[in-house]
Each structure stands twice: as structure tokens, then as C-alpha cells.
Design a protein around this nucleic acid. Structure first.
Lengths: 188, 188
DNA sequence: TAAATAGGTCAGCACCATTGACGTAATTTC
DNA sequence: GAAATTACGTCAATGGTGCTGACCTATTTA
């Protein structure tokens, strides 16, 4: 009669899922039922193609998406500090370090101590880093321009407004949009 | 005089980057120069928030994005085969296996042999799997509806057209949109 | 009966992210 | 001027997601 005290402890069962929960569901979630899946799925497939363009190029350099993101923002905002970059990317410094190390070692990026605060290691692209950033962006812009080929300036407004509304929960994103004037307020 | 034959082989240098390539670049890539970065960056920040909503929920279940994607498409198209799922997700069966194994072991999904072809293991959600899929989609739909709150039916057209054009390079995506009627052709 | 197909699995590897702990140099604060 | 804070670097361990390659079973098809 040893160990009978273990018998009724649910945590020791391998799978606590009830019979009801295991019931097979055969009907699909409809495209437009109580939930509308259209934008969810369009967004998923669209973003996959969007990143795929750059991914193909990155492979040739032995890099991944993380390298791309760092290279992108360093080129868009040369002289930014590590802290600013971490804030934009929303990752930890340990995550950044490996990726940044490679970009530094291979001379796509360089570090220059801050003038006022010499603890800072401000990040700048090299010519080589600039060239790669441009190559990557060209690929993405090609897809975007192709997708927007038949879009009027008028129709561009709701598209930008939608993306901006999706993105603007986070202060760091709002601040970036403001500082870099990401808007369609007055095209000409 | 041993090993002098190694001296002029570029591949043996630790860093073949030229001095010119190493030159520091201090000017930022402008938002709207020869390349327009606005959509690129809006898309990046928007997608990060979009996936973040689901990520928070998934952590509570010990799952990641890969689990979400499998669960999503199994719920949207119950009875699909492994091959069909791989085609939609564009991954290898080895990548799928770990993730699918967990969803099966924890009874979020179940497999039923095909009626005509008994080699197939068609995938169906359980009640439990359906509940989680709905929970995840509700979070994403909340953000989307909030972002589209002030958008007219009229303005929805260009948004959908843009996303669809971005996504439709791949046959598997086009086929999905068609079969699941992902469109805004006639709202009412 | 032999070949092709649907799927499963094992092993090993790469990439990208995490937390936690510890170190160094520069700046601020008291 | 000493102490605390800040900016950044790094080491170690872990988890999730993808890959290739190889090999396996069961079933269907030729």
C-alpha cells in the first residue's frame, strides 16, 4: 500500500485535457464569421513575401534578418547610440551583441565614441554597409512599388493610416515616425 | 623561406574590405530620397505589433509563432493534409514535425486517416484547439478593428488591394485567397 | 511485384531571441 | 574626491524555429 497518496494528484497525469476538450471539430472557422480573417491572412502572407526579398540577398552575405534590421536603422539614423537602437528594435543588448559584433568585424558598421559622452559608442555605417543597406531596400521598394503601381495618391492615405495605426502602440515607433516624418500629409 | 607562397593570397587575409569601403558614412538615408522608406518602416513596426498580440497569449501555453500558424490554418481548413499545410506554410516537414508533435500531444489538434487515401493523416482541431485559435484571432482582430475604426468601406479597397498585391507572388497564397474568398469585391 | 507517394523520425546545425551575472570606463551626484 | 549611476561589453545557459540529410513504415499505383 505504498504510494497510494499519489493517486489523485492531477499534476501527475500526463495529459489533463478533458474528453470534451478532445472532441474533434470538423467545421472551418469561416472567413467572415464573428471574426474576420481577411486582414489577418493578407497581412501574414504579405509580410512573408516582403521579408523574403531581403532574405535572399542576406544569405549571400551570411547574414540574417537581425543583421538587416541593425544595418537598416544605422543607415537611416547614423550616429545612434546602442541604447537608442535597442529601444527601436525592442531587443536586449545580449541579443544585439552577436549580430552587431559581426557587422563590426566585417566592416559594415563602425563605432565612434560620443563627443559629449565618451561612454557612448555611436554607430555609423561604412561605405560597404551603406551599399548593402541600399541593395536590401531596393529589393523591398521594388515589391512595394509594384504592389502600389495602380494606387492613386488619394488611395495611399488610407493604406498609410492603417499601417500607422497598427504600429503606433509603442512610443518608440511613434517617436520614429514623427522624427523621420513618416507621413502622407502633403505629397507635393 | 618556407610558406612564402601563402603571402599574396587574398582569401587568407582576415578582412578583405578595402580602405574605401571602410570609410565612415555620416549622412542618413533620407525618408524620401531615391528610395522611399515610409512603407518599409510602417510595415515593419505594424507587423511587430500585430504578432506581439498573439505572442503574449502563446507564452502562457508554452507555444511560439510556429504553433500559432499551424493551429490557425488547421482551424481555418480542418481536414487538410500534411502536404497541404507544408505548402501553405512554406516550411519543411522536419520543421513542422516538432511543432505539430506538441500540438498533437497536448490535444490541440488530432489526426484522422484519410477516407480515400489512408496514407494521409488529415489534421483537425479539437475543441481545445479551436478555443485557442479563437482566442488568438480575437486579439489580432481587436488591433485590426481598432486600426480600421475610422476607415470607410471605400477606403478598405485600396488597403486590401495593397496587401494582396504584396502577397500574391506565390501560387499557394493566391490559391488560398481564392478558395477562402479573401476579397472585398462586394461587402453587402 | 516494384515503384512512387504520404508521412514520421533521428541527428546535427544555424540563427535569433531570452535571462542572469559580472566587468569596465565614464559621468554624475553628493 | 568618493560613491553611485550610466553606457556598454561579455560570458554562460536556454528556448524556439528553421534547415539538410538520411532512413523508416504504410499505402497506393503502375
Amino acid at each position: 500500500m505504498v504510494l497510494t497518496y499519489l493517486m489523485d494528484i492531477p499534476a501527475l497525469q500526463s495529459d489533463p485535457t478533458s474528453e470534451a476538450d478532445r472532441t474533434v471539430v470538423r467545421d472551418p472557422l469561416p472567413t467572415q464569421g464573428s471574426l474576420d480573417f481577411r486582414v489577418i491572412e493578407l497581412f501574414f502572407f504579405a509580410y512573408r513575401e516582403f521579408t523574403g526579398d531581403a532574405d535572399e540577398i542576406l544569405i549571400r552575405y551570411g547574414f540574417g534578418r537581425a543583421h538587416h534590421r541593425v544595418l537598416h536603422f544605422v543607415n537611416r539614423d547614423p550616429g545612434l547610440t546602442i541604447a537608442e537602437l535597442l529601444d527601436i528594435l525592442q531587443i536586449t543588448k545580449q541579443s544585439l551583441s552577436r549580430v552587431l559584433r559581426q557587422l563590426l568585424d566585417e566592416s559594415f558598421i563602425c563605432q565612434i565614441p560620443g563627443d559629449e559622452d565618451r561612454r557612448q559608442r555611436r554607430l555609423y555605417p561604412t561605405q560597404k554597409g551603406r551599399a548593402l543597406a541600399v541593395e536590401l531596400s531596393e529589393a523591398q521598394v521594388r515589391r512595394i512599388e509594384s504592389a502600389l503601381a495602380k494606387t492613386s495618391d488619394e488611395d495611399m492615405r488610407p493604406i498609410a493610416a492603417f499601417l500607422k495605426a497598427m504600429a503606433s502602440d509603442r512610443e518608440s515607433a511613434r517617436e520614429w515616425f514623427e522624427r523621420k516624418d513618416i507621413s502622407w500629409k502633403d505629397p507635393e
